[in-house]
Design a protein around this nucleic acid. Structure first.
Length: 257
DNA sequence: ATGACTGCCTCTGGCAGA
């Protein structure tokens, strides 16, 4: 089964590209981030026409996440990241699909720093760690995937100095990410590409795509029950080069069984 | 180089993104 993540940067503007990607790549599960629409604006019928059923957690203008599954309705487990009742941003949706726990995340960017946005990012990462520990304790096959907004290693960015001041690669951001791995989660793309050089994001500005100035911030973290089943993973890079593309490319993992 | 581009919901310019 193929489980994918795609930060689509607006589901209204991206719908033709998104439907095209689903039809061509046919992921079993697709986690979407930055749908940027309220719940009532979600194009569920367009996905059903392709054989996908979905659950979604929308928000006006910003954020918003969704989980699509081929031929099955995802069984919702958790809507919104626990740990802060005052947090109303739509960045977390968790479900079960075909016996696998799927958590779709859109981790806060954190810029500018220092400031409240960076504080919110770090607090959100601590809450995520707690939720992932709870999932681990259930000992179920689980994949926590999405836009983590963290560049884990220097080999995950085209130019470390160019991004050094960015919230994506601050030591605090990296340490919080490393704690997730220390807790027993496996970064699928990093495991299969220890040398780095694999990007999932290219800025719209300054010809970043044409110059291959990218970095890796979209990740799939596997529980031990899933890490044993990992047979392949990758980035659908070609989709980033198409007309009216998102600034992110889809990432995916293929699990045995 | 206070740059660059894109999407959203319109206070069609300001904000957010990364």
């Amino acid at each position: 089964m193929k489980i994918a993540s795609f930060n689509i940067n607006g589901i209204k503007a991206r719908l033709p590209r998104l439907l095209e990607w689903l039809a061509e790549e046919r992921p079993t599960v697709a986690c979407l981030q930055e749908i940027k629409t309220q719940d009532e604006g979600f194009p569920a019928a367009e996905f059903e026409a392709l054989g996908y059923r979905a659950i979604w957690h929308g928000q006006k203008s910003f954020n918003g996440v969704a989980i699509l599954a081929d031929g099955a309705l995802p069984v919702e487990i958790q809507r919104g990241l626990p740990g802060d009742p005052a947090d109303e941003q739509s960045r977390y949706l968790e479900a079960e699909v075909r016996g696998v726990r799927i958590a779709c995340i859109y981790l806060p960017n954190g810029n500018p720093l220092p400031g409240p946005k960076f504080d919110y990012k770090l607090a959100w990462m601590e809450r995520l760690r707690a939720r992932m520990a709870a999932i681990r304790a259930e000992e179920v096959p689980a994949v926590v995937l999405g836009d983590y907004n963290v560049i884990p290693r220097d080999c995950d960015v085209w130019s470390p100095p160019a991004m050094a001041a960015d919230a994506l690669m601050q030591p605090e951001s990296r340490d919080a990410y490393a704690r997730l791995l220390n807790d027993g989660w496996t970064d699928a793309l990093a495991t299969h590409n220890p040398q780095g050089g694999v990007w999932t994001y290219w800025d719209y500005q300054a010809g970043a795509w044409q110059r291959d100035h990218g970095f890796r911030i979209d990740h799939a973290l596997l529980s031990p029950e899933c890490a044993d089943r990992l047979v392949a993973c990758g980035v659908d890079k070609a989709h980033r080069g198409r007309d009216k593309a998102s600034d992110h490319a889809p990432v995916w993992v293929e699990l045995r069984g």
